[in-house]
C-alpha cells in the first residue's frame, strides 16, 4: 500500500525528471525536491500563518492575563487557553500539522532515491518492477549515480592530499550549516524567552543541524543533496514571503548594534 501509493509514484516522477534532464541524477534530486516544495507550498504557507497567529496571541494582553491569573491551576489554565484559541480562531495544531504531513513525504522521498539508485542486485530487481510501462526500462537503467565528485549511493567524502586517509565530509557540513541557517531564519523569536517551549525551540535549533548532519555523514549522499536542496529552497521560500528574519543569524551583541542604527 505504502509502496504503491507513495514510493512507486515518487520514484517514477524522479525517473521522469532524470530522463528529461539528460541522465543527471543529482540534478533530478534537486529538481524533484523543488517540485515537492512547490506542491507542499500551501502547507508551508499555512504553517507560517498559524505560527504567526499563535505568536501574536501569546503576546496579547488577554493571554498574559490568563497566564498570571491561573499560574497555580494548570487545568483551569488549559481550559482558558482553549477558550481563547476558539475566540481568536487559532488552531493550536495548525503550525505542527503541516510538518507532520511532510514527514511521510520525507520517508517516501528517501526510499524513492534509494530505490532509484538501485546499488545492489535485489534493489535493481525491485526497481525494474516499480518502473511504469511508459519508460524504456533497459535503456534507462541503471541510473548514473555520479554527480559532481560524488557517488550518490554512497556517503560523501572529499579526499585531500594534506589530509591523508581522512575524508572531508563536505556535504555533511553544508547540510548542518543550511539546516542551522534555515531554523534560525524561520523560527520566530519566542513570546516568552524563559518558558519551556522557548527552551525546546533553542534545543531544536541545535539538535536538528547535528541530526541531519549525522544522516548526511552516514547515509547515501543522494539524501544529502535532498537535504541541502530542501533547506536552500526553504530559505528562499521564507525570504520571498518576507518572513525570513535575517537579523536572527547575527550574534546577540551585533543584533543590538543593528537595532540602534
Amino acid at each position: 500500500m505504502w509502496d504503491t501509493l507513495i514510493v512507486t509514484p515518487l520514484t517514477n516522477v524522479l525517473l521522469w525528471i532524470y530522463q528529461i534532464f539528460g541522465g543527471n541524477f543529482g540534478l533530478a534530486i534537486i529538481l524533484f525536491t523543488l517540485l515537492i516544495r512547490l506542491v507542499t507550498h500551501p502547507l508551508t504557507a499555512q504553517q507560517i500563518k498559524s505560527s504567526q497567529a499563535m505568536q501574536e496571541m501569546q503576546k496579547s494582553k488577554k493571554w498574559l492575563d490568563i497566564q498570571k491569573k491561573y499560574k497555580d491551576d494548570k487545568e483551569k489554565l488549559a481550559q482558558e487557553q482553549m477558550k481563547l484559541y476558539k475566540e481568536l480562531g487559532v488552531n493550536p495544531l495548525g503550525s505542527c500539522l503541516p510538518t507532520v504531513i511532510q514527514i511521510p513525504i520525507i520517508f517516501g522521498l528517501y526510499q524513492s532515491i534509494m530505490l532509484a539508485l538501485a546499488s545492489s542486485p535485489l534493489q535493481l530487481l525491485t526497481l525494474t518492477r516499480s518502473v511504469y510501462a511508459i519508460f524504456d526500462t533497459p535503456a534507462l537503467l541503471p541510473l548514473n549515480s555520479r554527480f559532481l565528485w560524488m557517488n550518490l549511493s554512497q556517503p560523501e567524502r572529499i579526499m585531500l592530499p594534506f589530509l591523508g586517509d581522512f575524508g572531508l565530509p563536505l556535504l555533511a557540513i553544508i547540510v548542518a550549516l543550511t539546516t542551522y541557517i534555515q531554523s534560525k531564519l524561520t523560527m520566530p523569536p519566542p513570546a516568552n524567552p524563559g518558558d519551556q517551549s522557548a527552551m525546546m525551540g533553542r534545543m531544536m535549533g541545535v539538535y536538528m543541524p547535528f541530526l541531519l548532519g549525522y544522516f548526511a555523514l552516514t547515509f547515501a549522499s543522494g539524501l544529502s543533496i535532498y537535504f541541502i536542496a530542501s533547506n536552500v529552497a526553504g530559505i528562499v521560500q521564507y525570504a520571498l514571503m518576507g518572513k525570513a528574519d535575517w537579523r536572527s543569524l547575527l550574534p546577540a551583541a551585533m543584533k543590538g548594534a543593528a537595532k540602534k542604527k
Binding site: 499563535m54 501569546q58 493550536p92 495544531l93 503550525s95 505542527c96 510538518t99 507532520v100 514527514i103 520525507i106 520517508f107 528517501y110 526510499q111 534509494m114 519566542p190 519551556q196 517551549s197 522557548a198 525546546m200 525551540g201 534545543m203 531544536m204 539538535y207 536538528m208 541530526l211 544522516f215 552516514t218 547515509f219 547515501a220 539524501l223
Partner: peptide, 24 residues
C-alpha cells in the same frame, strides 16, 4: 508551540530510526 516541538522531536527520532534501518 510545545506540541509542535514534541512532534518535531518524535518525527526526527522516527526518521533517524527509519533511515538507520534502511542503511544497515
Amino acid at each position: 508551540m510545545k506540541t509542535k516541538f514534541l512532534v518535531l522531536i518524535l518525527g526526527a527520532l522516527a526518521l533517524s530510526l527509519f533511515l538507520s534501518g534502511c542503511a544497515t
